[in-house]
Design a protein around this nucleic acid. Sequence first.
DNA 1: GGATACTCATTTGAGTACAAACGATTTCTG
DNA 2: CAGAAATCGTTTGTACTCAAATGAGTATCC
Lengths: 177, 177
Amino acid sequence: MSRRIASSKATVVSQAERDIRARLDDHELDFTAMSAISNIYRAGSAVRNHMERSLLADYDLSWVAFTVLWVLWIWGEQETGHVAAEAGITKGTLTGVMKTLQARRLIKRIPHRDDRRRVSIGLTKAGVRMIERVFPEFNTHETLAVSGLTVAEQHELARLLRLVLKKVSSIGPDEEA
Amino acid sequence: MSRRIASSKATVVSQAERDIRARLDDHELDFTAMSAISNIYRAGSAVRNHMERSLLADYDLSWVAFTVLWVLWIWGEQETGHVAAEAGITKGTLTGVMKTLQARRLIKRIPHRDDRRRVSIGLTKAGVRMIERVFPEFNTHETLAVSGLTVAEQHELARLLRLVLKKVSSIGPDEEA
DNA sequence: GGATACTCATTTGAGTACAAACGATTTCTG
DNA sequence: CAGAAATCGTTTGTACTCAAATGAGTATCC
């Protein structure tokens, strides 16, 4: 499996941010917003990258494959459309991921009782074993990632991110509210 | 252009987080870390998604293409390896993006004076026009995205993210420090 | 009840993304 | 200075990703 974003020298943000400011100072830009947003994206990429390399690669799982297993673990058998939405991918993408996961016998398809258009998916026993082995490790890495923050700061970080998320989602082309 | 991550119903985080906690309560997990980290990733995806749909699509630029133009704008002509690192992608990926951008006459190749292995790239005049038209709009969207936070909170968000970024980078397979 | 409209998942086509292999070039070493 | 090692961008192979088109199935409307 492969999806990856290279970690970069650019992760030494502070100096880079100073360089940027120096270059753009006369452009009337909102540097505070720029700094916050770019760090969200950088941190998000770094986290995904780290998890893929340090953990998921050992189990030959992509980030998305892991996410799908996790969704099915938490919420149980779900229709594909719902799984796609929860995993943050389109239905089309999910079809491909399902093919991979099904080939590895980690998920199974469950045809809908009445409506033959619909398909639900669920974890196989092997799928349950997989996620129950991987997730605690995943969580350990999460703990490590925020270990530079106090618990109060971790709560504050989550709170601020939820605000950004809410605002961005409210602007987007879907979910007009 | 295409790379995209679907925004999802899952952006209504609070209820989802409660559901998760209910399911996993006896697994001895660090929910605070989980909440912080998953929101970083969700917010990062939402931001990228939003920018691609609401802004970059109008100029037929992918996120990565935009990032490359931005890097070249800020730091001027650079060797490909350096651009890839700054943009957070691999050299292989950059080759493909360069092909697209060069076909649109937004960047140009500059062969190295002595070392024929090396190639630098830089913005063409059309490339400069493009980024100077797009970036102020991009920044406006950034401002909007954090408009639910006070300026102090925006600074705090950036600070906390830098701490996470620093920690994650320090663990990674590269940059062992 | 038969055409029409709708709603699902899937397929398609193009672009993005990685690691690993490669070829061209430069640098190091004996 | 010739062969080995290192370094650079590119190519290759596989997987992910989206939007849009497609196909299968269901619901509506007259």
